[in-house]
Computed example of a mutant assay.
Amino acid sequence: MSISNAEWEIMRVVWAKGRTTSNEILDILSQKTDWTSSTVKTLLRRLVDKGYLATEKVGKSFVYSALLTESDSINAQADGLFSKFCQRKHVAILEHLLEQTLMTEADIDQLQALLLSKKTEAVEQVPCNCTPGQCNCQEHVHILEEVTANGN
């Protein structure tokens, strides 16, 4: 299931606090949004319905906690993004992300170590994972030519 941008704002507060109430979320997010209590409660209800948040009644309030880790959620979002593009374009996306990302020397060292470990798994050419007609890689050029020649 996907999480809307507004729901991400809520989830970020829940991950940061661990356990929180709608009033705490509203207080924090009032610094960047003009949401009402009703808006926050609607978003919380959606996140509970989607299975991202647990709720517990404590006195007159409800306390919310995440059922998914922030890391797992970020990874799922990244996987979803990358699944939309040809595998052969993934490195270009990573290059763009690296160019735009502020990093410490430790971050760079960690990425360099990961890249070195990936060398043992390196392939000669990344296979295209697209349906013919969705990209222009060489794997599909002859298929597109055949389809066009046959008038299909």
Rank of each mutant, 00 (worst) to 15 (best):
M1A: 09
S2D: 07
S2Y: 08
I3P: 03
S4R: 07
N5L: 06
A6V: 04
A6T: 06
A6I: 08
A6D: 10
E9M: 14
E9L: 06
I10N: 08
I10L: 05
M11G: 07
V13K: 05
V14Y: 01
V14H: 02
K17N: 15
G18T: 12
G18F: 04
R19T: 03
T20H: 11
T20E: 02
T21L: 07
S22W: 01
N23Y: 09
E24V: 13
I25Q: 01
I28N: 00
I28R: 02
S30L: 07
Q31Y: 00
Q31R: 04
K32F: 03
T33L: 01
T33V: 07
D34A: 01
D34P: 00
W35D: 06
W35R: 00
T36D: 01
S38C: 01
K41N: 03
L43D: 04
L44I: 02
L44P: 00
R45E: 08
R46G: 08
R46M: 14
L47D: 15
K50L: 10
G51A: 10
Y52S: 09
L53T: 04
A54H: 03
K57W: 15
G59K: 13
G59F: 11
K60G: 13
S61G: 13
F62W: 15
F62E: 15
F62R: 14
V63Q: 02
V63K: 11
Y64A: 03
Y64N: 09
S65G: 05
A66L: 15
L68T: 14
E70H: 10
S71D: 06
S71L: 09
S71Q: 14
D72H: 10
S73A: 12
S73Y: 07
I74F: 12
N75P: 05
N75M: 15
N75Y: 15
Q77F: 03
Q77R: 08
D79L: 10
L81P: 08
F82V: 15
F82Y: 12
F82M: 15
F82E: 11
F85H: 13
F85C: 10
C86M: 01
Q87S: 05
R88V: 14
R88H: 11
K89E: 06
H90A: 07
A92F: 15
A92K: 15
I93K: 08
I93D: 08
L94W: 06
E95I: 13
E95D: 14
E95H: 09
L98P: 02
E99C: 15
Q100W: 04
Q100G: 03
T101Y: 00
T101A: 11
L102P: 04
M103D: 00
E105R: 12
A106M: 01
A106C: 09
D107K: 07
D107W: 03
L115A: 05
L116K: 12
K118G: 12
K119V: 12
T120Y: 05
A122H: 14
A122P: 15
V126R: 00
C128H: 02
C128S: 04
N129K: 11
C130G: 08
T131A: 03
G133D: 02
G133V: 04
G133L: 00
G133I: 02
Q134C: 07
E139F: 10
I143H: 03
E145V: 04
V147C: 03
A149I: 02
A149G: 00
N150P: 01
